[in-house]
Design a protein around this nucleic acid. Sequence first.
DNA 1: GCGACAG
DNA 2: ATCTTGTCGC
Length: 242
Amino acid sequence: MQDIEKDLALQQEKLRQWVEIPDGKEGYCPVKGDKILALDIQYTEDFAHIGGDFFEWQGKSIGTFAGVVRASVPYIPSYFCFREGPPLLSFIEYLQKQLSIVPQLIIIDGHGIAHPRKLGVACWIGIATKIPTLGCAKDTLVHYQGELGEAKGSRVPVLVDSNLVGYVLRTQDGIKPLFVSPGHLVSLETSVEIVLSLPGEYRIPDPLRNADQAARHHAKKSQEFPYQDIGEIGEVKPFFYI
DNA sequence: GCGACAG
DNA sequence: ATCTTGTCGC
């Protein structure tokens, strides 16, 4: 392993001690009207185009936003949080400061604790913001065992160091599953229930698809898909490099 | 040694 | 994640 990776792995081991994952029905549980933010990023060279879909739990859409910030850290598998975390944090802080909207829950395109060192990007964002987060990824980083049922809602546990950290979750009948895990302040059970309750008839829940579309169109300077352009989001600061 | 590897 | 054409199907 490279020295850089050793250092990043150590950072993750240190950050991990701040992560709080409640049990069962404890921790954050959304109630009607809670504000939820779904986030995704598209890249063009060294720029991170961030899309954010803001909506009320079991309620109306608040708005879809997109902005851009320089992504200065390279992507290294399992160290994704250091590349994607800072840009996402800048985006969240911008919405908070400039638009006065603070989410009660953040849904991230990536993993929470279903990660080799139990520190995915959703955990990173949760620690940085102190806001409950959960991760929703299209592929897994850790191996799992078991046969997944075909029906929506079927799930297979994902273990790391023999601890239950996430689920392979069928979000639509007969469709390739998603990988769901809590990031911070939400239980695994609640994370799964939240994802299954999100609107949409596709593998990826609508809020994440909207965030993806906004980011994608922002990267192409297109407004075909409706979103509020918040332009350039200052510089990203390196966090947690203690 | 080789392949796999969130986005 | 991105580079890329057509094509099959609802």
